[in-house]
Nucleic acid binder design. Structure first.
Length: 212
DNA sequence: GTCCCGGGCC
DNA sequence: GGCCCAGGAC
């Protein structure tokens, strides 16, 4: 077993199944992925409640930019995010909001298309691909980068380097990537914070104890 | 590199 | 009130 798999097994046996992504529909995952950019999930939840259980492509397109801004204000960056939500909804509509149609297309094609949408960068694209469409694509985020900087492995410096490293080291498995990312984020909030708190961290034995 | 922004915690 | 936290566009 490789180092990465050992790390996964350790986190999984410690925290268990975290059941990401908390959303009712794939479209809600897309909306949440945009809203959580540079924002804690706690704030996103406030906003999702503001939608009163009606988060549909039609609703997003019907609302004016100002109305969307008012609803999503608690997530911050609401001026840009209101535009991003419209843009990603338009993209979804280009597939008639047909999840099965999207799932049948090659992963890299959909990824490329998402990256052309205003407001969708690497992390948001991979989050949508993995958690909304269940493509086996590894999601990297600030927690992942921080954790790997402190690890006795060299996963790379850039987003794509780290992503490719993980996908080469691990089986191409949607469930595995789903759980792994959730576990990394959870452990990042609990222990592997900017200011490290290694006491009680399940990964302590693996980790280089150096300040990043 | 700088700008966009709010909420939580102290 | 000050500081920390969280991606993408340009």
């Amino acid at each position: 077993m490789g180092e990465l798999e050992k790390i996964y097994q350790t986190l999984y046996s410690y925290y268990g199944d975290l059941r990401w992504w908390p959303a009712d529909t794939p479209f809600e995952v897309m909306v949440g992925a945009v809203l959580t950019q540079n924002t804690t999930w706690n704030n996103v939840e406030k906003t999702l409640k503001q939608f009163d259980g009606n988060i549909s492509p039609e609703r997003i397109l019907d609302l004016s930019i100002e109305e969307v801004q008012e609803i999503i204000r608690p997530t911050g960056f609401y001026r840009q995010k209101s535009q991003y939500l419209k843009a990603v909804t338009e993209w979804f509509l280009s597939y008639d909001c047909d999840i099965d149609l999207i799932k049948k297309r090659p992963l890299l094609d959909i990824r490329f298309e998402l990256l052309q949408v205003r407001g969708i960068g690497n992390e948001t694209a991979d989050s949508i691909l993995l958690y909304a469409f269940e493509f086996p694509t590894f999601v990297v985020d600030a927690y992942t980068m921080r954790l790997f900087r402190r690890f006795p492995i060299n996963a790379g410096k850039t987003y794509m380097e780290v992503k490719n490293y993980c996908e080469e080291e691990l089986p191409q498995d949607t469930e595995l990537y789903n759980h792994f990312h959730a576990l990394i984020v959870h452990n990042g909030k609990e222990h592997c914070k900017k200011k490290m708190d290694c006491t009680g961290c399940p990964l302590e034995v693996f980790c280089k104890k150096i300040l990043s």
